[in-house]
Amino acid sequence: MMMISKAEAAASLSEADAIGRRTRTAGGYAMAGPHLILWGAVWLVGYTVTGLVDPRFLSLVWLPLVPAGAVGATVLGRQARTRDVRFGATPIRSLVMAVSIALFFLAVYLVFQPAALAPYLVFSALVTALIYVVIGVYGWPRLGWIGAGMFVASMSAYFFAGSYLPFCIALAGGGGLMLGGAWLRTV
């Protein structure tokens, strides 16, 4: 019978813990990837159409897109559960999250009432970028990099895109999420 030292046992346990963390992170990335691609597509369509219509009709652009994204996210969550990937998402939690986010943006827009269209367009991109950076800080670094990229691209568009801002935000946000989702799927 071979005996191992306390140091060897501690090193083995530490290595097992690190493998477990990497496995959970990879599983999380695998689940997050399709969600980022979905919401990136919603974003890309929404902001592109936003750039093409009269600003008075923006609610008509986004009103069908957000619920469609929420339904798609619910379907993706159900598929993930059938693959035994569990991160606490349920259809009701997905719905509550989508409605909460939509109400948050609506409330901010009602309270601050920007006089121009640009703040409306950039605010959601910046909040989304912040969320991904915060998630990245708490253990999912690829999401942090996606958020940082979205932030830089959105602010650059805000200052330099002029009348092309909706299309640049479509690419910065929607394209960034879709590319990020594809990147997460490579883990």
Results as ranks from 00 to 15, higher is better:
S5G: 08
S5C: 07
K6F: 07
A7Q: 14
A9M: 13
S12H: 05
S12P: 00
L13S: 06
S14K: 07
E15M: 11
A16F: 06
A18G: 00
G20D: 14
G20Q: 12
R21T: 10
T23S: 12
R24W: 02
R24C: 00
T25G: 04
T25F: 11
A26T: 14
A26M: 14
Y29R: 02
M31R: 07
G33H: 08
L38C: 06
W39V: 10
W39Y: 11
G40M: 11
A41C: 12
L44R: 01
Y47K: 00
Y47W: 15
Y47Q: 07
T50N: 06
L52Q: 10
D54I: 06
P55I: 05
P55W: 08
F57A: 05
F57R: 02
L60R: 00
P64Y: 02
L65A: 04
L65G: 03
G72D: 15
A73E: 14
T74H: 04
R78A: 09
A80S: 14
R81V: 05
D84I: 00
D84L: 13
D84N: 14
V85P: 00
R86D: 15
F87H: 13
A89Q: 14
T90A: 10
I92E: 15
I92S: 12
R93M: 12
R93F: 12
S94L: 13
M97G: 01
A98I: 08
V99L: 15
S100F: 14
I101C: 07
A102K: 03
L106M: 12
A107F: 15
Y109L: 07
F112R: 06
Q113T: 13
Q113C: 02
Q113G: 02
P114C: 12
P114E: 13
P114L: 13
A116W: 09
A116P: 02
A118M: 06
A118K: 04
P119F: 10
V122R: 03
V127W: 11
T128N: 10
A129H: 03
I131F: 14
V134S: 07
I135Y: 12
P141C: 06
L143E: 14
L143K: 00
G144M: 08
I146C: 02
G147V: 10
G147E: 13
G147K: 08
A148R: 01
G149C: 04
F151Y: 06
V152A: 10
V152H: 02
S154T: 05
S154M: 04
S156E: 02
A157F: 02
Y158V: 01
A161M: 04
Y164C: 00
L165T: 05
L165C: 06
L165S: 03
P166D: 08
C168A: 15
A170S: 11
A170G: 03
A172R: 01
A172E: 03
G173T: 08
G176H: 04
G176T: 04
G176Y: 04
M178S: 08
W183N: 05
V187I: 01
